Every structure is written in structure tokens, then in C-alpha cells.
Amino acid sequence: MFVEGKIISGEFDQSLNEFSLQRVKSFETQSIFKECQMEAVYNYLIKHERDSDGQIVTLYDQMLVRLTQSEINELISDLERVKSLYH
């Protein structure tokens, strides 16, 4: 099932119970998230959602992508949608 969020998009594989992240903002990427990994990212963002300076996401351990406070909130919403797909 394809998931199109405001910050991320990717494919959720129900048979493998994993999410293949394909886009962060306007950047293409490829990462696989098991449920526990998605939960860890989500919990981190919840703890830091009020950080006025935002957050930095690293793609491929090289490219830094800045997220504003409002983008963090959008990403949290995107992650909640993906989290609901895990079984």
C-alpha cells in the first residue's frame, strides 16, 4: 500500500510488516522501517516536537535535511498514519 504524507512517502508491505521510506520532503531515499524502528523515531519526535529550532534528518549518513517545528508536526502525523498499518 502506497502512503503519501506531507513530509514522507513510501510503500507499506503488509506481508513483511515493514515500511519502505522513499521520500523525505523533496529528497528521494530508500530505507526500510520495522515497527520498532518506526516507534523509536516517532517517540523521539514526540519528545522534541516543541523544539523551536526544529530537527535535522540525515539521509544516507551524508545529506542533512532540516525540519522546521511545523514540519516536525506534519511528520508526526505522517508517522501516525504509517504506525496504524503495522500489525
Score class of each variant (00 low, 15 high):
residue 2 F to T: 07
residue 3 V to G: 02
residue 3 V to E: 05
residue 4 E to M: 06
residue 4 E to P: 00
residue 4 E to K: 13
residue 5 G to A: 04
residue 6 K to L: 06
residue 7 I to N: 01
residue 8 I to Q: 02
residue 9 S to G: 05
residue 10 G to Q: 05
residue 10 G to I: 06
residue 10 G to R: 07
residue 11 E to S: 07
residue 13 D to I: 14
residue 14 Q to V: 13
residue 15 S to P: 01
residue 15 S to H: 12
residue 16 L to A: 13
residue 16 L to I: 07
residue 16 L to Y: 12
residue 17 N to F: 09
residue 17 N to M: 11
residue 18 E to N: 13
residue 19 F to K: 04
residue 20 S to F: 10
residue 21 L to Y: 10
residue 22 Q to I: 07
residue 22 Q to H: 07
residue 23 R to K: 15
residue 23 R to Q: 13
residue 23 R to F: 09
residue 25 K to F: 01
residue 27 F to A: 10
residue 27 F to S: 12
residue 28 E to A: 14
residue 28 E to S: 15
residue 30 Q to D: 14
residue 31 S to G: 03
residue 33 F to C: 00
residue 33 F to I: 00
residue 37 Q to H: 11
residue 37 Q to E: 15
residue 38 M to C: 08
residue 40 A to Y: 12
residue 42 Y to L: 11
residue 42 Y to H: 14
residue 42 Y to Q: 04
residue 46 I to S: 03
residue 46 I to G: 03
residue 46 I to R: 08
residue 46 I to T: 05
residue 47 K to F: 09
residue 47 K to P: 01
residue 47 K to W: 04
residue 48 H to C: 02
residue 50 R to M: 07
residue 51 D to C: 09
residue 51 D to T: 10
residue 51 D to Y: 12
residue 53 D to L: 03
residue 53 D to Y: 02
residue 53 D to R: 01
residue 53 D to E: 06
residue 53 D to P: 00
residue 54 G to K: 04
residue 55 Q to L: 14
residue 57 V to Q: 10
residue 58 T to L: 15
residue 59 L to Y: 05
residue 61 D to P: 06
residue 62 Q to N: 10
residue 64 L to V: 09
residue 64 L to W: 10
residue 65 V to R: 14
residue 66 R to A: 08
residue 66 R to V: 05
residue 67 L to D: 04
residue 67 L to G: 05
residue 69 Q to Y: 06
residue 69 Q to T: 13
residue 70 S to M: 08
residue 72 I to W: 01
residue 72 I to S: 01
residue 74 E to Y: 14
residue 75 L to T: 03
residue 75 L to S: 04
residue 75 L to V: 03
residue 77 S to F: 03
residue 78 D to H: 03
residue 78 D to A: 00
residue 78 D to L: 03
residue 80 E to C: 08
residue 81 R to M: 07
residue 82 V to D: 03
residue 84 S to G: 10
residue 85 L to Q: 10
residue 87 H to W: 14
